[in-house]
């Protein structure tokens, strides 16, 4: 594992009954970069995500996470909630999962559960209202305010999360994930259903998160978003990796073009042959 790798997925396979959703898939995500996982519908992107974030136990394979402090963790051996608590991996969901009956601020405070639990002496000391706990609460509200500001939600802090418009809910979900203090942020189709303006706001948010040193792994459908913000792209089709590299490299990969445009396999060979010929000229 090289020094700047944060996540290394090796020979990952996931079987649902007779269906091989992911077949021997390997890739690496580097620290401080935005890595995108793309592919056509049903390629297995979300399954990979669920394996990394502990919602599925992979049938085979190894998922190694390198923490900033030098520790290496095998994510497939951790329990689902430990991936966030111990591993520092936070995620969002394709179909937004906010605590809709809690306010926006409360959503961000719930995300700081583990830190606050420790500060409250697992509730017992907190019930007594010790100053150390009160300080921790103030800090947690400051942190929530910081992310509210970044996600442009400060005005709506006291509204129920379920009352926000769609784009704001997406941003809130990212802000909530960031409040857990992760090193790796996994986003499942963050731009789905956003209008161009909201999409642009999302890009700025993601860049500012990356600039804080948090690595991002994202699934995206929309090629234009991916090409604009990601540093590294991995392409998945039918559970297998078909391309891996910089956005420019991937964009011009005939296999990727074929996968997205839906050409037959023999035509792909033709395209490759043409490319090779073109290169010779």
């Amino acid at each position: 594992m090289t020094k700047d790798t944060i996540l290394k997925v090796e020979h990952l396979s996931m079987k649902f009954g007779g269906l091989m959703a992911i077949n021997d898939f390997s890739f690496e995500a580097r620290r401080g970069e935005i890595t995108a996982l793309i592919g056509p519908n049903g390629a297995g992107k979300t399954t990979v995500f669920n394996c990394i974030t502990g919602f599925y136990k992979p049938t085979m394979g190894m998922i190694t996470l390198a923490r900033r402090n030098g520790k290496e963790l095998l994510l497939e051996r951790l329990r689902d909630f430990e991936i966030n608590k111990v591993g520092g991996v936070a995620r969002t969901f394709q179909n937004i999962r906010l605590f809709s009956g809690l306010t926006v601020l409360e959503n961000l405070l719930v995300a700081q559960h583990n830190a606050l639990m420790k500060a409250s002496g697992y509730t017992i000391l907190g019930l007594l209202g010790l100053p150390a706990y009160r300080k921790a609460v103030d800090l947690s509200i400051e942190k929530a305010k910081y992310w509210l500001d970044k996600a442009d939600l400060t005005d709506r802090a006291d509204d129920p999360a379920g009352d926000l418009p769609y784009g704001a809910q997406r941003r809130l979900e990212i802000a909530r994930a960031m409040c857990t203090g992760p090193e790796l942020l996994c986003l499942d189709e963050p731009a789905a259903g956003l209008n161009p303006r909201e999409s642009a706001a999302l890009n700025t948010l993601l860049h500012s998160i990356r600039d804080e040193g948090v690595s991002i792994l994202l699934i995206e459908h929309d090629m234009s978003v991916v090409m604009e913000i990601s540093d590294h792209v991995v392409v998945l089709e039918y559970g297998q990796k078909i391309s891996d590299g910089t956005p420019d490299h991937v964009k011009n990969d005939p296999k990727v073009i074929a996968a997205y445009l839906g050409v037959e396999d023999d035509e792909v060979d033709e395209v490759i042959a043409e490319e090779l010929e073109g290169g010779r000229h």
């Binding site: 919602f55 909630f81 430990e82 999962r97 009956g101 719930v110 583990n114 509730t123």
Partner: peptide, 23 residues
Amino acid sequence: MPIGRAWEALREDEIACRSLGID
């Protein structure tokens, strides 16, 4: 307290709770 908020969050969405590191 954090535990009470976690209870209510659990009522709202258990899967989201787990993704936030709540046991």
